[in-house]
């Protein structure tokens, strides 16, 4: 178990290194190909040569790409100093550099945005996990009935709807026509009730999309599992249907659902780009889109790494949970 954990952690670090190296490589190479100068982005277009050279030196942009990458890594673990020779700016431990545009350090900005995104992701995740799997189970147990057909058709429709369309549609009806929900983000610490009210519509919209996938997945997996021999054995030894389904069948049904859940949740925390854009929430995804349209490389880099980190972390947690849920899985 411990060996497994250590091996996985090493794996996580290795994956992050690869993701960061690739991201770094692409976004710091592209300006070279297209002939734009990152130093110019820091100081603005109207700057004299000396100022540009100064910033280039300060940000380390005059070094080779490998040196720059190593400095970037050092910044994350140990912090780094930006020095012009005269004055020194210290960027403390998890240092992801400074935004080209606002000149603010990237890390605090990302932390600041994380609250919005996690609120959005977790609330929606609870909703879709509960409703999605429940619908899937009911559908599988009442296979080929009208209810099954109805829920599965709805689920297929749900899978086929883009979130920004359902989001706008929901806003158009419930916010602008009926005036039921406000939706401007209010921090949980400021006002929990308003936080809940304002997030409800985005949660439902987001959860609907995902619940559809989960309902389909749950139904299909449960139907597969119900055909297995051990279920027949369980029934043959006289166990009640409730125990057979709840204790025996659900355990192995949950494994694939967990896999997908880990990937989805990780991806969502990494930036619910579309949802945030649709509902105008200033989370990580919103920040990323803004950074991209402003060619703000350090912020893009930061968000990509952040997002990759959450995806990988979620996958690790899921693999650990497997052992708890599915008795057939042994961690070695």
């Amino acid at each position: 178990m411990l060996v497994y954990l250590i091996r996985r952690l090493v794996n996580v670090v290795a994956m992050l290194l690869v993701v960061s190296a690739v991201t770094f490589g692409i976004f710091f190479m592209v300006p070279k190909i297209t002939g734009s100068d990152p130093a110019l982005l820091y100081v603005g277009k109207i700057a004299d040569k000396a100022a540009i050279e100064g910033i280039r030196h300060k940000m380390g942009l005059d070094k080779s790409i490998i040196e720059q990458y190593l400095l970037f890594l050092k910044g994350i673990f140990a912090g780094r100093d930006y020095s012009t020779g005269v004055d020194v700016t210290h960027c403390s431990a998890p240092c992801l550099g400074y935004s080209f545009k606002t000149e603010r350090a990237v890390w605090p900005v990302l932390l600041d945005r994380l609250g919005v995104t996690t609120s959005l992701a977790f609330g929606a995740a609870v909703l879709w996990l509960v409703f999605g799997t429940a619908t899937g189970v009911v559908s599988a147990l009442r296979r080929r009935t009208l209810l099954d057909r109805f829920t599965m058709t709805t689920a297929l429709a749900g899978v086929s709807l883009p979130i920004y369309f359902t989001g706008m549609l929901a806003s158009a009806i419930f916010v602008y026509q009926l005036g039921w929900f406000p939706h401007d983000y209010v921090a949980f610490t400021d006002d929990p009730v308003a936080w809940f009210q304002n997030l409800l519509l985005p949660w439902i919209t987001l959860a609907f999309l995902y619940a559809a996938t989960y309902a389909r997945l749950t139904r299909a997996t449960l139907l597969d599992v119900l055909g297995e021999d051990y279920i027949r054995t369980a029934r043959a030894k006289g166990l009640g249907e409730r125990t057979v389904i709840g204790k025996h069948a659900m355990r192995s049904t949950l494994t694939p659902i967990l896999t997908v859940f880990g990937m989805d949740l990780g991806g969502l925390i990494g930036g619910a780009v579309l949802t945030e854009t649709t509902f105008n929430f200033r989370g990580l995804g919103y920040e990323a889109v803004a950074a991209i349209s402003a060619s703000d490389l350090p912020v893009i880099m930061g968000v990509t790494l952040f997002a990759g980190f959450f995806i990988i972390l979620a996958n690790l947690l899921v693999d650990l949970l497997y052992a708890v849920v599915d008795p057939r899985v042994r961690l070695t």
């Binding site: 994956m15 990494g270 990323a288 893009i300 990509t304 990759g308 990988i312 996958n315």
Partner: peptide, 10 residues
């Protein structure tokens, strides 16, 4: 493990 959408836009 790549944040695909973000990466693609970028």
């Amino acid at each position: 493990a790549f944040p695909q959408l973000l990466f693609s836009i970028a």
